[in-house]
Design a protein around this nucleic acid. Sequence first.
DNA 1: AAATCGAAGTTGTATGGCCAACACCTAGTT
DNA 2: AACTAGGTGTTGGCCATACAACTTCGATTT
Lengths: 268, 268
Amino acid sequence: MTQEPRYRRIAEELRKAIIEHAYGPGGRLPSEGTLAEQYAVSRGTIRQALMLLRHDGLVTSRRGTRRVVLDDAPVQDFAQMQSFARWARSIGEVPGGLVIRQGWYPADAEEQRSLRIGDDARVLRVLRLRRLSGRPAMLERTSYPEAVGAIVEPLRTDTVSVTEFLERGGVYVADAEHTIDLVRADAEDAEHLECEVADPLLRERRRTTDPAGVPLEWSEDRYLPGSIAFVVHNSLASTPLTRQHMMPGAGSDFGSGSGSGSGSGSES
Amino acid sequence: MTQEPRYRRIAEELRKAIIEHAYGPGGRLPSEGTLAEQYAVSRGTIRQALMLLRHDGLVTSRRGTRRVVLDDAPVQDFAQMQSFARWARSIGEVPGGLVIRQGWYPADAEEQRSLRIGDDARVLRVLRLRRLSGRPAMLERTSYPEAVGAIVEPLRTDTVSVTEFLERGGVYVADAEHTIDLVRADAEDAEHLECEVADPLLRERRRTTDPAGVPLEWSEDRYLPGSIAFVVHNSLASTPLTRQHMMPGAGSDFGSGSGSGSGSGSES
DNA sequence: AAATCGAAGTTGTATGGCCAACACCTAGTT
DNA sequence: AACTAGGTGTTGGCCATACAACTTCGATTT
């Protein structure tokens, strides 16, 4: 049983209190000293907890005055961004997942780079359709390196949450990098998402790594627009969001129509 | 002259060293103790500096082993995400900005909510076309509350960087929340971005606030696809990225074609 | 009435210390 | 050769303290 550290448990208690409007919105949190007494910990531990809330944009933090609760507080944790199934459940929808195609292939150039593996390595490519309460929502093309693929491969094709299974298998995700842009549906997208070829889709390319920085997963997800948006909070305290400039044609399938890119599952 | 705290200056030095590949990629940083000696500060100060780099995804951080430098290190700071002009210059493009229309209007419902102002308040709406080295790249519809608008209003219509001007005026941005999704170009978008009506565009809605949590700016930016992407890093240490579910029609202009939404500048 | 000053309260920066948890390597054992 | 145990190095968690920088508000002065 791994014990959660104190500052994280305190942060969760405070987060819950904020969400239940115990202080605000616009209200002020108790001072660090007061909270330290209440929880019987040192001020440093309280500060660690409050730092978490600050990074998520739940409270302000400035010298001289007590912290102010912000409204529109995003109410998700790392796990919910990591797992489609968990996210779906948190918004009251029923997540569905179905593997359309799956198999081992030699890693292509992009997979070698993204997963940081050699040119003789092979990857498990999985094409999955994700549903929200029955309706197609997202098509997911994921590549796993050898070690992770071995865990994922035997899963039933209708396994809803791969992430939760991997956790039980001892695979822990520590970091993720997401690149969000826009592409047009290729024939495969159109077929499974039940839209027209060349319809615009919201694309999220994602690489997740373990605590040591070793890549665990490389995925390209294509969302039907109109029902999903991505929300990012950044601040002086941490700047996780950046713009990226792309040379025309490089890395983007936009405008090419047929989708030459990066995909898994194009093979028979 | 406000002095930057020590841990920030150390973080910048380390960041620069990492970017110049002094350690890696894949290399290991010196231990906290070693760095503390080198910089003649305590271990706690070094830890604060390293925390910044960790949040930005430049290094790993796990118990028992020294920090590992990650590749694909994003190389931007808060200011560059905040300012189109600064970002453009950082990628070697020449930023252009032109105010197409500007004026004071009574705040509509969305502006009142986003800027947290009363229903009798007025806002300065600015419609701006942003260019990258001459080519249209983004159309920006921004609303400023009274106090900020008064500073922005007298600016020349071809002022390239509003953000940099606001800083000199004593307006400091501390937090920003971005919502990214997909919309179709309306007539106005098409005219200025030189695309067709109903062409898909990448939309970023953004609200920025000052250190006290007071909204400074509410903006809806529409990017021509194909040349830009948004990159987000999140981790167990901080989770700034979340998915958002939208009820069909609510908040999204997608599919409606004409663009009923939220915009400034629809008036003559 | 308005401006100035100062005290109290609060968060930010920095120091120093202690132990636990974990990774990594080595020497010894099996 | 493979496994085991232990020692060393390193980061995570937590504590206690001190002062600096800043906000806020009330009292005093102008």
